Computed example of a mutant assay.
Amino acid sequence: MPKAKLQAATVGGSADDTEAAFYDALQNGDIDKLMACWADEDDVVCVHPGGARMVGVAAVRAGFDAMFSQGRIRAWPEHVRKVEALGSAVHNLVERIEVMTADGPREAFAVATNVYHKTAQGWRMVAHHASPGTGRDMLEQSPASTLLH
């Protein structure tokens, strides 16, 4: 059995567990553990901030491989908002990202939505969409103060 399939079987029993494994793998640059968090479906989709839409497991893997080739990524999910049902979960969050620059580490932010489906192998990510954010995104907003588009 391929290594990624073995690791996929070890991802936890909830969407929260899968999200924790995803960000842990992201921070450690472990492509196999990161891909174990994804559903093995042709329709999975990923969009990195300012990037193109990647559809399918191979494209998602290639996108993260390219990201990892640029150096270590440190990102933490914060201010997570969840909508959950029996077979799906949607997490909207702010990613606090540490970026290494010539002047040392700097903070950046992204606003992300992660979508999970419950599969025969457990909870798996089917979509990750991140957009550039700002420090203002770290401020909690009440539903009444958010703007709709």
Rank of each mutant, 00 (worst) to 15 (best):
G71K: 05
A85K: 08
G63R: 05
Q7G: 00
D24T: 15
P49N: 04
A102H: 06
H48W: 06
S69T: 04
V45E: 13
G29K: 09
R81V: 15
D65W: 00
A9K: 11
N92C: 14
D30F: 04
V47W: 09
A120G: 12
N28K: 13
V99G: 06
R74A: 12
K82W: 08
T101A: 05
Y23L: 10
P105R: 14
A9H: 08
R74C: 01
G13A: 12
D17G: 05
G51F: 11
G104K: 06
P49F: 10
A120R: 03
G12E: 07
L26D: 08
D24K: 15
W76G: 10
Y116E: 08
I73G: 00
P49H: 13
G13C: 01
W38K: 01
V57R: 12
A59C: 04
E95Q: 07
W38D: 00
N28P: 01
V44C: 07
M54H: 14
A66P: 02
L6W: 08
A120I: 05
C46M: 14
A15Q: 02
K82Y: 07
V80Y: 05
G122T: 04
R53T: 14
T18S: 15
L34W: 02
C37F: 06
A85E: 01
G122I: 02
A110F: 04
E95Y: 09
F64N: 05
T101E: 04
I31W: 05
A108P: 03
L86G: 10
G13W: 00
V11H: 08
V44E: 02
G56D: 08
V57C: 01
V44G: 09
Y23F: 15
T10N: 04
V115S: 11
A75E: 06
R61I: 08
N92D: 05
A36G: 04
D30C: 01
F68Q: 09
G50F: 00
H48G: 05
C46P: 00
V111E: 09
R74T: 14
L26T: 13
D42Q: 09
Q121F: 01
I97K: 03
D65F: 02
H48E: 11
R74Q: 11
P49A: 02
R106E: 07
V111R: 14
G71L: 09
P49Q: 04
T113W: 12
N92Y: 06
A8K: 08
Q7V: 12
A4F: 00
D24C: 10
G122V: 06
A75V: 03
Y23W: 06
K5D: 15
T119D: 05
G51Y: 09
G71T: 08
V90C: 09
G87T: 10
L93N: 07
P77L: 08
E107S: 09
S69I: 03
D32H: 07
A120P: 07
A39S: 12
M100Q: 11
V47T: 14
K33D: 07
V94E: 12
K118S: 06
T113A: 13
V11T: 06
Q70P: 00
R96V: 13
A8M: 10
E41I: 00
K118N: 10
V111I: 12
D43V: 01
E84D: 08
I97R: 13
T101V: 02
V47Q: 09
G63C: 13
D40I: 00
M67F: 06
D32E: 12
R74K: 15
A66Q: 15
S69Q: 05
R81T: 13
